[in-house]
Amino acid sequence: MLATYPIAATEQNWISATLLGALRISLETLQEGNAPPEFDEALSEEYREDFLRGPKFKKAYDLFIAKCRPLTVDQRAQVLTALNEQNNFPGVFTSTTPCCSIKDAFPDVHSAANELFKHAFEKLSEWKTPGCEQTIRAKYHQLVDAHLSHGSCPFCGYEPLEAADPDLVDPDLDHYLAVSIYPFAGVNLRNLTVMGDKCNRSYKGAQDILLDEHSARVDCFDPYGAEQVKLSLEGTRILSGPGEGPAWVIHFDPDIKSRNWRRVFKLETRLRANVLERHYKKWIEHFVSYAQRHGFDITSTDGAIDAVARFKETCEFDSYPAIGRLKTCFFELVEAALNDPMTVDRMRNFLVESA
C-alpha cells in the first residue's frame, strides 16, 4: 500500500452489522434445535424498517436459512465460523489467523450468502444513514477522497481516482477479500476499498489477497491500518551502457510483506513501464529547463550539483505519490553520480547533452 484509507470512512457499517447479526441469531437458533426466527424478527429494531421495504432481502435470507437447515450441527458450526472469520478485521490480515471459505464444502450455502450480500452491496449506493444527507457510499467516498488528497489509487500510487462530486461516476469499490470467496464480508466497509479501475479490473479481479501464488497464507496489508510501503531505486544504473537506457531496480520496504501485494497488482512491471520508462526523459528535460530558468550552469560540476540539489526538493510534490517518490529517487541517483569521482564526468556530460 502506497497510502492507506481513513478508518472513519467505515463508521456507517450498519448494513453489514445488521445482516451479520441476523444470520448469527438464526444459525445459533438452528444449532439449539429450534426453528430460526423470521427475517423481521432476526433484525435489530433500529434498522428493521429499511430491510423490510422490499421482498428481496427476506427472499435471500429465507433461501440462506433453507440451505442451512439440512446441515448437521458440525456443518452449521463451520458456516458460523466462516461468517465470523471472514469479518475478523484487522486480524484476518495476519497469516496465522484463520479465514475459511465454505465455497467448496457447502456450495449451496455459499451461493445463497453471495446473493444476500450482493444485494446488500447495492444498497450502499441507495440507503442513507439516519441524519445523513448522503448515501452510505457517497459519504464513504467523500471521506476517502478528502483523506487521499493526492487523488490516486493507494494500490499503485499513480492511477487517478474520480473526485467526490455528484456529477462524476464513483470509482470502483473493490472487495479486498474477494466476495466470490468470502461473501460474508461482502458489504463490510472494513473490506471495501476505493480502487483505480485498472488495479481492480485488470489486475486484482477475484484473486485471493490472503494467498500467495502457491496458495499459502501470507501476511497482508490492512488498507485501513498505518503501514505504508516505501520505494527506492537503490542499485539502479542510470548510465547503464552506450545507447542503453537506465537499468532499473525498484526496492520496496518492507520487502517480504509487500511481495504478494506486488505480485497481485504487478507493481514492479507497472511502475517500471508506466512511470520510470515513460517519464524519466521528461524529468531530465524538466530539470534542464529548471536549471536554465534559475541560472545554474550545468556545464560545471558544482553548478550541476547545486541545480540537482535544488530541483530534487521539488520532485516529491510532482503529480501522484508513486511518481513523485520515484522522481525524487531518480535525482538522488543523479546527485550521487555527480558526487562520485568515477562517474561525475559522464553524468555531467549526459545532462549537458540533454539540454
Results as ranks from 00 to 15, higher is better:
residue 2 L to V: 01
residue 3 A to P: 01
residue 6 P to W: 09
residue 8 A to D: 15
residue 11 E to D: 11
residue 12 Q to H: 15
residue 13 N to F: 14
residue 15 I to V: 11
residue 17 A to I: 12
residue 21 G to C: 06
residue 25 I to A: 12
residue 29 T to C: 01
residue 29 T to Y: 02
residue 39 F to A: 04
residue 41 E to L: 04
residue 43 L to W: 02
residue 45 E to A: 10
residue 45 E to L: 08
residue 58 K to H: 04
residue 59 K to T: 11
residue 66 A to R: 11
residue 68 C to V: 04
residue 70 P to R: 09
residue 71 L to H: 10
residue 79 V to W: 05
residue 82 A to V: 04
residue 86 Q to I: 02
residue 95 S to E: 07
residue 98 P to C: 02
residue 106 F to I: 05
residue 111 S to T: 14
residue 121 F to I: 01
residue 122 E to F: 03
residue 127 W to K: 09
residue 150 H to V: 03
residue 152 S to T: 10
residue 164 A to T: 08
residue 164 A to R: 14
residue 168 L to V: 12
residue 172 D to C: 05
residue 173 L to G: 03
residue 180 S to A: 14
residue 185 A to G: 15
residue 187 V to I: 15
residue 188 N to I: 14
residue 197 D to F: 14
residue 197 D to N: 09
residue 198 K to I: 13
residue 203 Y to C: 06
residue 206 A to R: 04
residue 212 D to S: 08
residue 213 E to F: 09
residue 230 K to Y: 05
residue 230 K to G: 00
residue 239 L to T: 01
residue 243 G to N: 05
residue 244 E to C: 01
residue 255 D to L: 08
residue 256 I to A: 13
residue 259 R to T: 08
residue 267 L to Q: 06
residue 284 I to N: 08
residue 294 H to N: 15
residue 297 D to E: 11
residue 299 T to H: 04
residue 305 I to K: 12
residue 306 D to P: 00
residue 310 R to F: 05
residue 313 E to Y: 03
residue 319 S to V: 00
residue 322 A to V: 00
residue 324 G to W: 03
residue 338 L to Q: 08
residue 339 N to W: 07
residue 346 R to C: 10
residue 346 R to I: 01
residue 347 M to E: 09
residue 348 R to F: 12
